[in-house]
Design a protein around this nucleic acid. Structure first.
Lengths: 128, 128
DNA sequence: TCTTGACTTGGAGTCAACTCCAAGGTGTAT
DNA sequence: ATACACCTTGGAGTTGACTCCAAGTCAAGA
């Protein structure tokens, strides 16, 4: 698979794929005789895995840390599990925060001519 | 209220508060006779409102757009409602994404010695 | 009076995560 | 054979959201 195909499949640009490789978030991809990247299935799986961690809100730095640990083998399983558990707590917190925001927004949409206006209008009055 | 007190109340640094004012995300705060910012209750309410939008994942740019509309008065109510509805969809999407990630992570934590390893190990093998 | 500490400004610097660019190589289509 | 599309690299530039800094003002306290 060429970088263009992978780009199409993953939604990442070719530049981003090269960038992820440069910073060590995905392994160094094998090149063909002309030096052109040739992605295999396991590369694709790793990219998808990494994208899931990213969508879960992990920073690239944490993902790299995770991938580095995975490279080192089974001895790092505990450390990786710990990273995932941290991430789990993180996600749970963010879901609760988003639910709170959703409630607020629903409320604002429903009661559109009360609090939204008064929240901002009052402050704005002071400018006049 | 001085900038320091507001900083303590909101968790924002004084620099951030000045920055938000500079970019128009909060109104220009009244100064006392010495040119020192003096925040009133409605300023605080607006800051808290803006912070909620931010926690809901709105970009500063969108928040500014919203606040600008609010300044223009009632005629922009529909436009603001639309912004909130967009944001609502956005939050719902992100919650669902996070829930998916949570499921994946829970699964990885449970079955720690199966897929996590195989996802990354296979790709790593190609480096050797 | 002099120091201390909190505030002011405009502007520069930082960080994460890309995104773009110039210069050059290669393979296929006309 | 030459144009075209697509790839390579190293490095510079961009964006969003801060964060820090220098130079200066001001008021209260020793």
């Amino acid at each position: 698979m060429t970088i263009k195909e992978v780009s199409k499949n993953t939604g990442l640009t070719a530049d981003t794929l090269r960038y992820y490789e440069k910073i060590g978030m995905i392994p160094i991809i094998r090149r063909d005789e002309n030096g052109i990247r040739s992605y295999n299935d396991s590369d694709i799986r790793l990219i998808n895995f990494v994208l899931r961690l990213k969508r879960a809100g992990m920073t690239l730095e944490k993902i790299i840390e995770y991938v580095e640990l995975a490279k080192e083998g089974d001895s790092t399983a505990e450390a990786r599990k710990k990273l995932l558990e941290e991430q789990r707590e993180n996600i749970i917190f963010r879901i609760s925060e988003l639910k709170e925001s959703l409630d607020l927004i629903d409320y604002k949409i429903e009661h559109y001519f009360s609090c939204v206006i008064s929240d901002t209008k009052e402050a704005v009055e002071n400018l006049k």
